[in-house]
Design a binder for these strands. Sequence first.
DNA 1: GCAAAAGTGTTTCGGGTACACCCATGT
DNA 2: ACATGGGTGTACCCGAAACACTTTTGC
Lengths: 229, 229
Amino acid sequence: MKHTYDYPRPAVTTDCVALRFSAGHLKLVLIQRAHKPFKNAWALPGGFLDMDEDLKTCVCRELEEETGITNVFVEQIKAYGTVDRDPRGRTVSVAFLGLMNPDDSQLDAGDDASDAQWFRIDQLPKLAFDHGQVIKDALALLRTKVRSEPIGFELLPKKFPLRDLQRLYEIILDQSFDKRNFRRRILDLGVLVDVGQVEKNSKHRAAKLYRFDRKKYKQMKKNEVAFKL
Amino acid sequence: MKHTYDYPRPAVTTDCVALRFSAGHLKLVLIQRAHKPFKNAWALPGGFLDMDEDLKTCVCRELEEETGITNVFVEQIKAYGTVDRDPRGRTVSVAFLGLMNPDDSQLDAGDDASDAQWFRIDQLPKLAFDHGQVIKDALALLRTKVRSEPIGFELLPKKFPLRDLQRLYEIILDQSFDKRNFRRRILDLGVLVDVGQVEKNSKHRAAKLYRFDRKKYKQMKKNEVAFKL
DNA sequence: GCAAAAGTGTTTCGGGTACACCCATGT
DNA sequence: ACATGGGTGTACCCGAAACACTTTTGC
């Protein structure tokens, strides 16, 4: 079936900068292109917007179709629409930052997804289209937001030791924190609760586990207390 | 001439939250709709993306066509694409924040523009589509950016007294600053230069005029000194 | 000469930063 | 018992905030 309009229209797509925190590194999922243009280069997962779905729905659907990943926190970065960004035709792409629990990030070798792979963000391959810029913008957004909103927790399991939270912040912000100061600052915010458990399989003394308490965070916002790291 | 595609495509538009600072208030330009839907409600200037123009080009062109305003600093807010945001059909709109020198903001009664008007942002009329949300997001972006980037100057003439700069910041951030502390902070950044002139037509003692020095700002950034208010 | 706004330094206070040792646990 | 990482308190310093008077100029 064909679709006809009085004026030409660009294609609208979404792309996802899907990040995972594991083994002390931020990792990004990319898909190797099988065809021209940018054959064999790596691209962000993404695809065309359906007429009956919102932008967020689209980016989550495409991410699942191409990588098998579900259950992702997504936040819009911005729209990219330079005239020649896709040599095949005019395309406007809305990019999203996707953050996930490391337990939810097993790649599924779907049909579309046979060439999906995780890359450390400091070891990226040749990228297709303007995806290099999109990734830069995504990381800049992550760095900004992680300081003023509790989005770091989206990259950790429900229960986590403070050490992991500190390492995550250190990796994202590319700076190191004093352990005591970091713990005080985070705990004084009052949005973490001790779940009363400790790590399993610790090689030495096991660390307490905490979880982020969304209700307490909302309360804190209502009281106009800022989340500032 | 008709344009045909294998899959349906949403229309792509841009919208502009164009702000001006005058008489101690932030003002926003809106256009009254003559037709359904949202007949007689007020809407942001904006329109369809042409196939050979970038998003920024589009929003500037539409703003000029509908209001006569040119010479605007524009910065993307985000894309809006919920399924039912325009009852006439699926539309994805990329919204921009537009800031202008108050001298450049005379409204031009063009054909499209006969009903363009400035409104104080705290006295807005009934708005069409999701434009209320877009405006909220625009102001949030302005508040964030004005603290970490020198975009406030886009809302002032080339030469301005420090008093006006302080009033602008106070209006945007909805808080008052101590005059001496404000001046010290701004001047210590080292990005303002005394132009060696004073205000004309002052009713009393005339204030010195300053201008923002973009070169010094770039130098400052290169030295990794932060612009923080 | 007076009304109105411009311009200018110092003190105080609090939050952020620096810093080191004991504890618990697995091997 | 030892190696490894977990967990904890205090002192200092710097930058932000508070604060009031003199100067200039138009009327």
